[in-house]
Amino acid sequence: MPIALLKFPSDLLREVFKLCEPFELYKLSKCSKRAQRSKKLGGPKNWKIRFSSRRHVIICVDDSNYSFEQTKNPNEYFKIEYSRMCIEFPNGEAVDMFVYLLETFGIRTVESLGCDYGNFHDFSKIARFLIGRNMEIESFWIGAMKYDAFMPLMNQMNITKDFTSFFKFPSDFRLQLTKYPNKICIYYSFWYNIGQLLECTCVRIELLGSKMRNRDLNVFLKKWKKRGTFPNLRLLKVDGNNIDDRSPILGSKPPIKNVDNPTIRVSFGNEEIDDAIRVMKADGTVGWLNVKLGDVPTLKFLVANPTDTVVKDLAEDEDLEDDW
C-alpha cells in the first residue's frame, strides 16, 4: 500500500530517515531532485565517509560500514550483498560519487582518506575539494607509491587524528601539517629528524626505520623531563639501526630495562610496556622507558596518566596461575 512520504512534516521525515539504511536513502535520493533535497533532513546521525580506492566509497555510521561500489553493468545496479551495494558512479568518477554522498548525507567528517598508487588521480581531486571546504579528515594515510605530487596537498589538509605514511619521502623532507594530529605513524622515517621530533605535539608518535641515534633520543627525553614540554605525549616508539649500546640515553646505555623488578607491565588502552624504568618529569609526571637492542633496536617510552594507566606486577599473576 503506497504512502505519500514527502507529505509528512519534516520532523516525521527525519524520524523515518533515521530508521532507514544508507543504501535505501541513497536510492531514495535517486528518485527525484526533491527526494534528494529531503534526504538532507536525515538528521543528526554522525555519518562519516572513507575513501581509499577509486572503485568504492564507504559511509560509516554507528560502527557499521556501507560500501558503494562502482559497476558498469546495469544488471548489477542497486544489488546489495551484505554491506556492499553496486551502483553507477556519477560521470563514472569516484570523486563525483564522493561529493554526491557528502552532499546527500550532509557528511561533515572524513573518517579516513588514503592515497595510493592506484587512486592518485581521484585522491588529488577529492583532497582539493576537502581543502576547499576545510573539512576535517580524521585519518590520512599514504601508501608506498612513487609520485610525490600529493605533498603540497597534504600540507593543507585538516588531519585531526591519525597520519600514517608508507611513503619514502626524500631525506630533506620536512613534515608541515597545518596542525599535528593526535597520532603519527611513519614507516621509512629516515627523513624525520630530531628537529622535527622536538616540534611534534602529537599524543602518539611512532617512527619506524628511523635514523635517529642515541644522542637524538637523549636530547628528546631530556627535554621531556623539563616542566611544560610535550604536554600531549603519551607514547613514543622509535625503531632503527642507529640505536645502539655505544652512548647513553638518560644516563644509561642500551639495553635499558628494569633489572630490579623485571616483571612490571605498564599499560593504557592497547599500549603496554614491560620491564621499563621509571622516568620522572619535573612536574611529577611519570614516564616509563625501555630500549631493546637486537635485530630491530627499539625505544619505547610511555607516559603514565593516573586516570587510565595500569601498573601490574606480572609475577603476582604467575603466582596466581600456579595456585590454580
Binding site: 514527502l6 523515518v16 536510492k27 528518485c31
Partner: peptide, 19 residues
C-alpha cells in the same frame, strides 16, 4: 514506513512512497 522500501529499487521506492 522505513521497512516498506528495504531492498527495493529507486523505481519501486518511487511507487511505494509516492514520490
Amino acid at each position: 514506513v522505513a521497512m516498506m522500501v528495504k531492498g527495493k529499487s529507486p523505481e519501486e521506492i518511487r511507487e511505494i512512497w509516492m514520490i
